[in-house]
């Protein structure tokens, strides 16, 4: 009887110890002080990287074949549409090239420096298989070794995809712009009004807040990142287009819904912008009065 009670006590103790450990880890993670936890996750990401890549390499032909079978008509229509878009893009490239040449010549004429130098980019392959049903990030096959750091913006050819939230030596994880934790300063191009875009969950459009009631916003307008000082995004990255506008009398602002430009369901290759924001340096105030120095 006493032995059974001892076993029962030990079982409860073990369970309590495990639950307390889990709660302690959750607290550490929530407070963002999980340096060791992030390192452990990063190391695991690196360690399993080759397995993921190999699995992806093996599965890709089968996946493509399956997609080809089940969505042949869609693919054919998409192919025709892409050919049209490619022709338009080629014409645009020529026009943009001419404009860029003109701009550079003008800058040289007035002796001005280019205020917005091109941001270096790293192209990375998306590992096309989440490891969980509750995944909110995508995994890239490049990491710190390639210059990628936490906070860097990620975009596809269509527009902004999200930001890097974890970078290990050879891998990185990207939080998508639809994630509820995601927010970014944005600008409505036509009016020039700034707002804050926030994710609302997978498959849902973004919500832009702080757009004044007086501002005229029309569905179909383009929304880009505003790139205000200290923002993790440079100005001018395409976010999406306005789909809906609702006045919010309580807040005294409009609630603007924006559909992301990037197709987040079919990401194969993305570009990480090696951009680190210029955080203003702290101003050091000299305590000595100016007279004392003289």
């Amino acid at each position: 009887m006493a032995r059974r009670a001892g076993i029962r006590r030990r079982t409860w103790l073990r369970l309590a110890l495990l639950v307390v450990t889990a709660i302690a880890l959750l607290t550490l993670d929530a407070r963002g002080s999980g340096g060791v936890l992030d390192t452990a996750r990063g190391a695991t990401l690196d360690l399993l990287g080759p397995v993921r890549t190999f699995g992806d390499w093996v599965a890709e032909p089968f996946r493509n074949a399956w997609r080809g079978i089940v969505s042949y008509d869609d693919l054919e229509a998409e192919n025709a549409q892409l050919r049209g878009e490619l022709a338009e893009a080629e014409a645009s490239v020529l026009r943009v090239g001419e404009l860029e040449r003109d701009r550079q010549e003008l800058l040289a004429l007035v002796g001005a420096r280019d205020a917005a130098p091109a941001i270096p980019r790293v192209t990375a392959r998306v590992i096309d298989a989440p490891v969980s049903n509750f995944e909110r990030t995508i995994e890239l096959a490049k990491g710190r070794r390639d210059g990628i750091r936490e906070g860097m913006p990620v975009e596809s050819g269509d527009g902004l995809v999200g930001r890097v939230v974890q970078a290990s030596t050879t891998r990185s994880r990207v939080e998508l712009l639809t994630d509820p934790n995601f927010d970014a300063g944005v600008r409505i191009v036509r009016s020039g009004d700034d707002g804050l875009a926030s994710g609302r969950g997978p498959g849902r459009d973004l919500e832009v807040s702080y757009i004044e009631l007086e501002t005229v916003v029309i569905p179909g307008e383009t929304v880009v990142t505003s790139g205000f000082a200290g923002s993790t995004f440079p100005a001018g990255l395409l976010v999406g287009t306005v789909t809906d506008v609702e006045p919010d009398a309580v807040r005294g602002a409009q609630r603007v819904t924006v559909h992301p430009a990037a197709d987040l369901e079919r990401l194969r290759w993305v570009q990480v912008l090696l951009y680190e924001p210029n955080v203003p340096e702290p101003v050091i105030v000299d305590r000595e009065p100016p007279e004392a120095e003289q």
Partner: peptide, 11 residues
């Protein structure tokens, strides 16, 4: 291996 809060799966 997941990106859910660390400790959630443990619990």
């Amino acid at each position: 291996i997941l990106h859910t809060p660390f400790g959630m799966s443990l619990l």
